[in-house]
Design a protein around this nucleic acid. Structure first.
Lengths: 164, 164
DNA sequence: AAACATAGTTACACAGGATATCTATTAATC
DNA sequence: GATTAATAGATATCCTGTGTAACTATGTTT
């Protein structure tokens, strides 16, 4: 990999213009991705005091909402592959926030049950998340918020014409 | 980690109700994250035929838009840390899409220059991405699209009230 | 009973992203 | 002008999220 060594000036050394990502800005996905990274950082900061990260928080909240859920159902709900949940569930169980109850009906499956502490932690973490999101979106009108959620749902469900 | 073994039924075995992520759906960030994963998959599929992935595609497009750019500037623009770009630039250079030109002005820095093939590939990949996004967003009105982009920018720039 | 399917697990791989540290070089300061 | 500080890029690690393949114990079908 030989490298040229001519007198090619660095961009803004010559023009004084700031470099731009204009082409990428033409894509809605690019804007969504950059906003997502801010929202993800907000979430991480909000739930970190509870020893939770995005996946463990999401899993905990869904288990609290759906006591008795099986791991495969949880994976479907969160749209992740089953193997990715094993360590997450291990972590939540190790922290005493949920329990894996063997079911008699199907001895392969676990019924995931939140503990009292899990229910409490989920509520507190969600409140922290809610507060962080409220701060981040303080200037957002209810109408704009509704549009964003509707569009994100449309994208997620493959409505606007779907892919391929 | 002992596991209980009582007769706790699996959720929908008893209720027949589908499990829900209602609490998570209360957060705008959750909707954005799920949509983002669809958009990311679209992008990956669109640019994969060109041997590009999200980061290499983004870097290539920015270099084409800003010939002579330095790596640190590119990192700032894409909001990633400098070390993460090294392998990406190596890859683009190895594929003959860009060149690292040593500058005489500052012999530490490289001026990143797209090759003719790089310019061509960037154009084709962007067109594929544009087409994929157009399919995905076919049902989206111009107004809704504008709202989404405005809100994402607001979030990215920390306008609606900022964090903390 | 045999074949097949399923729940959870293990092992592995890969992309995206961050930090700390090293080198060559440039800029600043005494 | 020599020493110190700052900068560009590179290297080495590490972490999180996410996916696939294959294994085990069960359950279900045929």
């Amino acid at each position: 990999m030989e490298r040229g060594c001519e007198d090619i000036p660095t961009r803004d050394a010559e023009t004084g213009h700031a470099a731009q990502d204009a082409t990428l800005r033409g894509f809605l996905g690019y804007h969504v991705k950059r906003a997502m990274s801010v929202l993800q950082a907000d979430l991480a900061g909000a739930i970190e005091p509870f020893g939770l990260r995005m996946m463990s928080y999401s899993a905990l909240v869904v288990i609290v909402d759906n006591p008795g859920l099986r791991q495969a159902q949880l994976a479907d709900l969160l749209a992740v592959e089953r193997p990715n949940l094993v360590a997450v569930i291990d972590d939540l169980e190790g922290k005493g926030l949920i329990m894996r109850h063997k079911t008699l009906a199907d001895r392969r499956a676990y019924a995931l049950m939140p503990t009292a502490e899990g229910i409490d932690t989920a509520a507190k973490a969600s409140e922290a998340n809610r507060a962080a999101e409220a701060r981040r979106l303080a200037g957002l009108s209810a109408e704009d918020r509704a549009v964003v959620i509707r569009v994100m749902n449309m994208i997620e469900r493959g409505e606007g014409g779907s892919a391929r």
